[in-house]
Simulated assay, not measured.
Amino acid sequence: MLKGSKPSVLSLAERCRNILASNWHGKLSTIKADAHGSKEEIYSSKVKYFVKKGRVYIWVPENDQHDVNAIIDERGSFAVNSPHPGSLATVLRSVGKFPTRVALTGEVIRVSDEKIKLVAETLRETLSAEQKAIKESSNVVSGILNSSNLDSSSRSKNLQELLDSNKSYIPYKFNMSSCSYIDGSGSHQEVDLDAIEASKADPLSRFSIALIDGINQHEARRRALTLFCVTHMNRRAKDAFLLSVDRKGFDVLGKVLGPAAKDGSHEYQWKELRFTLKEEARDIGRFCQQLVEMEKEALDNLSSFSGL
């Protein structure tokens, strides 16, 4: 890296913030309890949540076991995966890779009655801003998002169900005391809480899952990813999936031609490849614009590569 140049990848703290900001559900674990106190067992369930200004708000169904547990013992843990929609998850499992994830420990604090409406209104305003940004987006952005299965990839649509549901929920604030980043191989790395507090969620994180799914579902754009492997990495690829996006670039899981074996044969192997944007994408529109420019550039340069 040249002196004074900006890093092309996110820090661990930024990756944690992005995973939390892009997802909407996670696994909450609390210590089982009753009127006689805490037990030695753990109760876990899938819950929805959202993040506002770095604070994690978890929505627990009314009369859920977590409700009782948190009153007696506030200690808890919360695990969130980096969402991998559609066929991407299947491919990752087939090659033995896990979603990157964030594991938090801390206290599960029930939001006071007088602040419940405020938290709900904060969620409503957050979703309204996201939906407005999508409506005002360019045709390219709309085209990519429309290719996505929004029932499973739209963060705002899935969180809107909390506000529209007839089911009663109780919001809790999760106060972090530790944070770990877990990579695709299962390796844990402790992340400094001050670094997380100082970092900001990527501007693309709220839309990243719909973007990833939309591109992976679009045949022409999938083909363009394979061309990126050739033109930018000089790696011949016969398949590729978009793995993650952020303001600095994107990661591709490409099925690329591996090194020659002893008998001279070659096999295709799934590899993660990092592509850096020419300039940081301050919003979803700028990211998609640069992606289109890269697609055009790859097609223009295609003739310079042989053996395709």
Rank of each mutant, 00 (worst) to 15 (best):
E107I: 08
E107P: 07
I109A: 13
V111W: 07
D113C: 13
D113Q: 15
E114C: 15
K115V: 14
I116K: 15
I116Y: 12
I116F: 13
K117M: 15
L118M: 15
V119L: 10
V119T: 12
V119M: 06
E121P: 07
E121R: 14
T122C: 09
T122I: 08
L123I: 02
E125G: 00
E125S: 12
T126G: 03
T126I: 01
T126A: 10
S128P: 00
S128M: 14
S128F: 14
Q131S: 10
K132S: 15
I134K: 08
I134M: 10
K135C: 11
S138L: 05
N139G: 14
N139I: 00
V141M: 02
S142A: 11
G143Y: 02
I144A: 01
L145N: 01
N146T: 07
N146P: 04
S147T: 05
S148P: 12
N149F: 09
N149R: 07
S152R: 06
S152L: 11
S152G: 10
S153C: 12
R155K: 15
S156K: 00
S156Q: 02
K157C: 00
L159D: 00
E161V: 00
E161K: 07
L162R: 00
L163I: 08
D164R: 02
D164Y: 01
S165E: 06
N166F: 05
N166S: 12
N166H: 08
N166E: 09
K167H: 04
K167C: 02
S168K: 15
Y169C: 08
I170R: 13
P171L: 03
Y172K: 08
Y172P: 09
K173T: 09
F174G: 03
M176D: 03
S177N: 14
S177F: 07
C179W: 05
C179V: 10
S180T: 04
H188W: 14
H188I: 05
E190P: 09
E190V: 13
V191P: 09
V191I: 13
D192T: 06
D192M: 13
L193M: 14
D194M: 11
I196A: 07
I196G: 04
I196L: 12
A198C: 07
K200D: 13
A201R: 01
D202A: 04
D202N: 08
P203H: 01
L204I: 01
L204F: 05
S205L: 08
S205R: 05
S208A: 15
A210Y: 07
A210R: 08
L211Q: 06
I212D: 11
D213T: 02
I215H: 04
R221H: 05
R221Q: 06
T226S: 08
C229H: 01
V230R: 03
V230C: 04
V230T: 04
T231A: 11
H232I: 02
H232N: 06
H232P: 00
M233T: 01
M233P: 00
M233Q: 13
N234Q: 13
N234R: 10
R235M: 14
R235L: 13
R236H: 13
A237L: 04
A237E: 04
A237Q: 02
K238T: 09
K238H: 06
D239W: 05
D239C: 03
F241G: 05
L242D: 03
L242F: 06
L242N: 03
S244Q: 11
S244K: 07
S244Y: 10
S244L: 05
S244R: 06
V245G: 01
V245K: 00
D246L: 02
R247S: 15
R247E: 15
D251K: 04
D251S: 12
V252M: 05
L253D: 02
L253T: 01
